[in-house]
């Protein structure tokens, strides 16, 4: 049941000045099924939420989030990173079905 993992929209500046604190935004397409919502037959729809999100820079964790059912559908996260050098950012997240997704972005620091 990995059907709920879809697109993500990750936004960050392509370039930054050394020492700048930049904002990174991630929006993930996911229904965030709470596990407490009855379907049309009155049966509870199984919980399926993105429960973990991580952002790594050159292999080192910059930011992470544990998510609970009270997070909105299509979860949105904005956080910061101090830009010290150019490198690769990896974003990865996982939902209750175990489906894992990953996206990569580069940032150039001058």
């Amino acid at each position: 049941m990995a059907g709920n993992m879809g697109r993500a929209l990750i936004s960050l500046p392509a370039k930054a000045k050394r020492g700048d604190v930049i904002e990174i935004r991630a929006m993930i397409a996911h229904p965030m099924e709470t596990g407490f919502r009855p379907d049309s037959q009155g049966r509870l729809v199984a919980r399926d939420i993105v429960n973990r999100f991580e952002c790594l820079f050159e292999g080192e964790q910059v930011f992470a989030c544990d998510l609970f059912p009270a997070m909105s559908a299509n979860p949105y996260l904005s956080f910061t990173m101090r830009a010290d050098m150019s490198g690769e950012l990896v974003f990865r997240w996982r939902d209750d079905s175990g489906a894992l997704s990953e996206e990569k972005r580069r940032i150039e620091v001058e």
């Binding site: 930011f63 992470a64 997070m71 996260l77 904005s78 956080f79 990173m81 101090r82």
Partner: peptide, 15 residues
């Protein structure tokens, strides 16, 4: 939310 030495600020936004 979990921060790191690279975070720069202890701030996050969500919905």
């Amino acid at each position: 939310f979990h921060f790191s030495a690279r975070s720069g600020q202890a701030t996050a936004q969500t919905r």
